[in-house]
Deep mutational scan, measured.
Amino acid sequence: VIAMPSVRKYAREKGVDIRLVQGTGKNGRVLKEDIDAFLAGGA
């Protein structure tokens, strides 16, 4: 999974398994917005 360390930390704090999140950034990078969208109700 491609993600910046700050995004990985954010996901950990929110209790999200970053491997389950679909990245929308360049080359499938997971963004902070992707974590929020995942929490809001889905992949």
Rank of each mutant, 00 (worst) to 15 (best):
D34M: 01
A11I: 01
D17T: 04
V1H: 07
L31Y: 07
V16K: 00
S6R: 10
P5F: 07
D36S: 04
A43C: 09
L39C: 06
K9Q: 12
R19W: 09
V30R: 03
V1S: 08
D36P: 01
A37L: 11
L20W: 10
A37N: 13
V1G: 08
I35A: 00
I18K: 00
A37D: 10
R8M: 14
Q22R: 15
Y10V: 02
S6G: 11
V7M: 04
V21H: 00
R19C: 06
L31K: 08
A43E: 13
D34E: 00
T24K: 06
G23F: 03
I2M: 06
A40L: 14
Y10W: 04
D34P: 00
Y10E: 02
L31I: 09
L31R: 10
G28S: 06
F38K: 04
D36G: 03
K14T: 06
K26W: 11
D36M: 06
R19S: 11
K26S: 10
T24F: 04
D36V: 06
L20H: 10
G42R: 10
P5V: 11
G42M: 15
V30H: 02
G28L: 05
V7W: 03
V16S: 01
I35H: 00
Y10M: 03
L39M: 10
I18V: 07
F38L: 07
D34L: 00
D36F: 04
Y10R: 03
E13A: 12
P5E: 14
A3P: 05
R29H: 09
A3E: 04
P5M: 11
K26M: 11
M4S: 15
N27H: 12
E13P: 01
L31Q: 08
V30I: 14
K9R: 14
T24G: 04
G25Q: 03
V1N: 08
R8A: 08
I18A: 02
N27P: 02
A3T: 07
G41L: 14
M4E: 15
R12K: 15
A3H: 06
G23T: 03
D17I: 05
G41Q: 14
D36I: 06
I35R: 00
N27E: 09
D34T: 01
K26V: 12
V7Q: 02
G23K: 03
L20A: 10
S6T: 09
K14D: 01
P5T: 11
A40N: 13
L20D: 09
G15K: 08
D34F: 00
G42V: 15
Q22K: 15
K32Y: 09
A3G: 05
G23R: 03
K14L: 12
R29P: 01
A3W: 03
G41W: 13
V1L: 10
A11G: 03
Q22H: 14
T24A: 03
V1K: 08
R12P: 01
G15W: 05
A43T: 14
L39R: 07
G42T: 13
F38E: 04
D17P: 06
G23V: 03
D17E: 07
I18H: 03
I2L: 09
G41C: 09
A11R: 00
V7T: 07
M4H: 15
V21M: 05
L39S: 06
R8S: 06
A11Q: 01
D34R: 01
R29G: 07
K32S: 06
E13M: 14
G15C: 07
M4G: 15
E13H: 09
G41V: 13
E13T: 10
S6A: 13
E33V: 13
D36A: 04
R8T: 07
R12I: 15
F38P: 01
K14M: 14
V7E: 05
G28F: 06
I2A: 08
L20T: 08
G25Y: 02
D17M: 05
V1D: 07
T24P: 01
A43F: 14
R12W: 15
I2R: 07
N27M: 10
L20G: 07
Q22Y: 11
V1M: 08
R8Q: 12
A11L: 02
A43L: 14
V16L: 06
F38R: 04
E33K: 15
G23W: 03
G23P: 09
A3L: 04
K26R: 13
G28H: 07
P5Y: 07
E13D: 13
A11Y: 02
G42Q: 15
S6E: 12
V21K: 00
A3D: 05
R12V: 15
D17H: 05
L31E: 09
D34Y: 01
N27T: 05
G28R: 07
Q22N: 12
V7D: 03
D17G: 03
F38Y: 15
D36Q: 05
K32M: 12
M4K: 15
F38Q: 04
A3N: 05
G25I: 02
K9T: 08
E13G: 08
K9M: 10
T24V: 03
I35V: 11
E13Y: 11
I35M: 01
R8E: 10
A40E: 12
G15S: 07
K14E: 04
R19A: 11
K32A: 07
G41R: 08
A3Q: 05
K9F: 08
V16N: 01
D34Q: 01
R29A: 13
A37F: 10
V7H: 02
L39Y: 06
R12H: 15
I35Y: 00
V1W: 04
A40F: 11
E13F: 11
E13K: 13
I35G: 00
D17Q: 05
R19D: 08
G23I: 02
S6N: 11
K32V: 09
L31G: 05
R19P: 02
V16D: 00
L39K: 06
K26H: 12
I18G: 01
A40D: 11
Y10N: 01
V16H: 01
R12G: 08
L31V: 09
L31D: 05
N27A: 09
K9V: 08
V16C: 06
S6Y: 12
E33W: 10
D36W: 04
K9P: 01
R29Q: 13
D17A: 06
A43G: 14
A43W: 14
G15I: 04
F38G: 02
P5L: 12
A40Y: 11
R19M: 10
D36E: 07
G41A: 14
K26G: 08
I2Q: 09
G25R: 03
R29T: 09
G42S: 14
G41S: 14
M4R: 15
I35L: 04
R19H: 09
V16P: 00
G15A: 06
D17Y: 05
V7G: 02
V30D: 00
G41I: 13
R19F: 09
E33T: 13
N27Q: 09
E33R: 15
A11V: 01
D34H: 02
I18Q: 01
R29E: 15
N27Y: 12
K32I: 12
L20K: 13
I2N: 11
G41M: 15
E13L: 15
E13S: 13
V30K: 04
K32P: 05
D34W: 01
P5G: 11
G23A: 07
R12S: 14
N27D: 13
A43I: 13
D36R: 05
A43N: 14
G25N: 02
E13V: 10
P5I: 13
T24H: 06
F38A: 07
A40I: 12
R29K: 09
K26A: 12
Y10H: 05
G41T: 14
A37V: 10
G41Y: 13
A43R: 11
R8H: 14
D34K: 00
A37W: 10
L31T: 13
E33I: 13
A37K: 13
E33G: 13
G15M: 08
G42Y: 12
I18P: 04
P5W: 06
V7K: 01
S6I: 09
A40T: 11
G15H: 08
L39P: 04
K26T: 11
A3K: 05
A40W: 11
R12A: 15
V7N: 02
E33Q: 14
G15D: 07
G25P: 01
R19V: 07
T24Q: 04
K14P: 00
K32R: 13
Q22W: 10
E33D: 11
Q22G: 08
R29I: 09
I18W: 07
G41P: 09
V21I: 11
F38M: 07
G41H: 13
K14A: 08
L39D: 04
A37I: 09
M4A: 15
T24W: 03
K9S: 08
I35E: 00
D34G: 00
K26N: 10
I18E: 02
Q22T: 14
M4Y: 15
G28Y: 06
A40H: 11
L31H: 07
L20E: 10
M4P: 10
V30T: 05
V16W: 01
I18Y: 05
F38V: 07
V21F: 03
G15Q: 07
I18S: 02
V16E: 00
M4I: 11
M4T: 15
D17V: 04
S6V: 08
I18M: 06
A11D: 00
S6K: 11
G28V: 02
A43D: 13
